[in-house]
Design a protein around this nucleic acid. Structure first.
Lengths: 128, 128
DNA sequence: TTGACGTTACGAAACCTTTCGTATAGTCTC
DNA sequence: GAGACTATACGAAAGGTTTCGTAACGTCAA
């Protein structure tokens, strides 16, 4: 049974993004990257990553002196979870409504629109 | 200058959904609807709606004894705000990525897929 | 006018997230 | 070993959300 993790908070998501980008990393690694954009201190990141370990959002390898962390769920899976949550909370459970809003809200390039169209074709193909 | 409201929290969003559905409502109205699905007490809803008034999420008409509340921003506009926020936090700022995930994540009906395709056509039309 | 009732107002508690200071411990070099 | 350096661990504070008990107030009926 694949257990489902709690929804990551904002700060946690920022850390997860680094882990997804870089692969397994130490607190130092993550802090170095995040400190360029945010002013958060080292121990703050550490504490967050400890909490994330408790929550099961990340998995920790303690075999080295500097523990190595990696995300427990893939970026895709987490994104879907977040979307599913938002769909329920703000779009009356209708993913289509969300998609329409997202498309009309911000500009996408022609390439992106085409990619979406391809995906639509594939989805419809499955249905037939 | 159109002022932008702070992001509604979960409990606030639940209240907003009722207001969007029903139109201007009293605390009693909202509470009656929400209490069927959630176990929240009357004064809890009241307090939240007072806070929402302070934040500018809703507008209050005090001319009646039972104040009448209505959302300050449209459902659409709020949804876009939430989406925009999620795109930044979890999709590296790419709405297209979000749309792709949303589409592959949950099933949509053929009708919905067609509606999305129409929208794509319209968007592309604007571009040309 | 008084009492009952429905309403808003206020304040505080419980909880969670985010932050960081300080303590503790492992490792490497001299 | 001693000392410097780099880690993790722990605890607590600040801030925000959510909850509700209780007080205060208006209104209507008798």
């Amino acid at each position: 049974m694949a257990e489902t993790s709690p929804m990551p908070t904002d700060a946690e998501l920022a850390i997860l993004r680094v882990l997804w980008d870089r692969g397994p990393s130490t607190v130092r690694d993550v802090h170095e990257i995040l400190s360029t954009t945010q002013g958060t201190g080292y121990t703050t990141i550490l504490k967050l990553m400890q909490i994330m370990t408790e929550k099961g959002l990340v998995v920790r390898d303690e075999s080295q002196r500097a523990h190595v962390y990696e995300p427990r769920l893939s970026e895709q899976r987490t994104q879907r979870q977040l979307l599913s949550d938002l769909v329920d909370r703000a779009f009356s459970g209708s993913p289509a409504k969300l998609v329409m809003q997202a498309l009309s809200g911000r500009k996408a390039t022609t390439d992106e629109l085409n990619a979406i169209r391809d995906l639509l074709d594939r989805l419809e193909g499955d249905k037939r």
